[in-house]
Measured scan of single mutants.
Amino acid sequence: DEVRLHVNGHTIEFRGIDEEIFKILEEAAKRGADEEELRRLAEKLLR
């Protein structure tokens, strides 16, 4: 299960996240989070 999030012209792939987590990451990206911040956030949410 892989999703792709487009951030500042880059595509970031995440594996094993559900739609709810994806929406949180998408919102963070809209607020200016970079790839590293998004990955840290995803790790926290998946715990």
Rank of each mutant, 00 (worst) to 15 (best):
R4I: 14
R31F: 14
I17K: 03
E27V: 10
I24S: 05
E19R: 11
I21Y: 04
G9A: 02
N8Y: 01
E20M: 13
E35A: 09
E27F: 15
A42T: 03
A33C: 07
G9T: 02
E36T: 12
R47F: 14
A33T: 06
G32D: 02
A33E: 04
G16E: 05
K44S: 11
V7S: 02
I17M: 06
L41G: 00
K23D: 04
E43K: 14
L5M: 06
K23P: 02
L45S: 03
G16S: 03
E27M: 14
E13H: 08
A42C: 12
T11S: 09
D1R: 13
E2G: 10
E2W: 14
H6I: 15
E37H: 09
A29V: 09
G32K: 01
H6R: 08
E27P: 00
F22N: 01
F22K: 07
E43H: 15
E19C: 10
I12D: 02
E19I: 12
K30T: 08
V3E: 04
R15I: 13
G32S: 02
A28V: 08
F14P: 01
H10W: 03
R4W: 08
G9L: 03
E26G: 06
E20I: 13
E37I: 09
V7N: 02
E2Y: 13
I24F: 08
R47Q: 10
E43I: 15
A29Y: 12
L41V: 05
R31P: 00
K44R: 10
I12G: 01
I12Q: 01
E13K: 09
E2M: 13
K44Q: 09
I21R: 05
F14L: 06
L5T: 02
F14R: 00
R15L: 10
L25T: 00
K30R: 12
E27A: 12
E19Q: 13
V7K: 01
E36L: 09
R39N: 05
I21M: 15
D34P: 07
L45Y: 10
E36K: 13
E2D: 08
I21N: 12
E43T: 14
E43Q: 15
E27W: 15
G9S: 03
N8T: 03
D1S: 13
F14C: 03
E36N: 11
L45A: 05
I17F: 04
R39A: 03
E20T: 13
L5V: 07
R40Q: 08
H6P: 04
R39T: 05
G9C: 04
L38H: 00
E43C: 15
E26P: 00
A42Q: 04
R40H: 08
R39W: 14
L25E: 00
D1W: 15
D1Y: 15
E2T: 15
L41Q: 02
D18I: 04
E43M: 15
E37F: 14
R31M: 12
D34Q: 10
R47P: 04
A29H: 06
A28L: 09
I21E: 05
R40G: 08
R31A: 11
L46I: 12
K44T: 10
F14Y: 04
A28S: 08
A33N: 05
V3Q: 15
A42V: 13
K23G: 07
E13W: 08
A42S: 05
D34H: 09
I12T: 01
T11R: 03
D18C: 07
E35C: 06
K44N: 06
R4Y: 15
E2P: 13
D18H: 06
F14M: 04
L38P: 00
E13A: 11
E19A: 14
D18R: 06
E13D: 06
D18A: 07
T11W: 15
F22T: 04
A33P: 01
V3C: 11
L41R: 02
V3A: 07
G32Q: 01
G32Y: 03
D1H: 13
V7G: 02
E19S: 13
V7W: 05
A29T: 04
D1G: 13
E37N: 08
I17S: 04
E2A: 10
F22H: 04
H10N: 08
L46H: 04
I24D: 02
L41A: 01
E2F: 15
R4L: 12
D34A: 08
R47T: 11
L5W: 00
I24R: 11
G32C: 04
F22P: 00
N8R: 04
E20K: 14
I24W: 06
R47V: 09
K30F: 14
I24G: 01
L38T: 00
G32F: 04
E26W: 14
E2Q: 07
E20C: 10
A33Q: 06
K44I: 12
L38N: 00
K23V: 07
I24L: 12
A29N: 04
A29P: 00
E2R: 11
E35I: 13
R15W: 14
I17Y: 03
D18T: 14
L5F: 03
R40P: 00
E20G: 11
R4K: 11
E26H: 09
L5P: 02
L46N: 05
E20P: 05
R31W: 15
A28C: 04
H10Q: 11
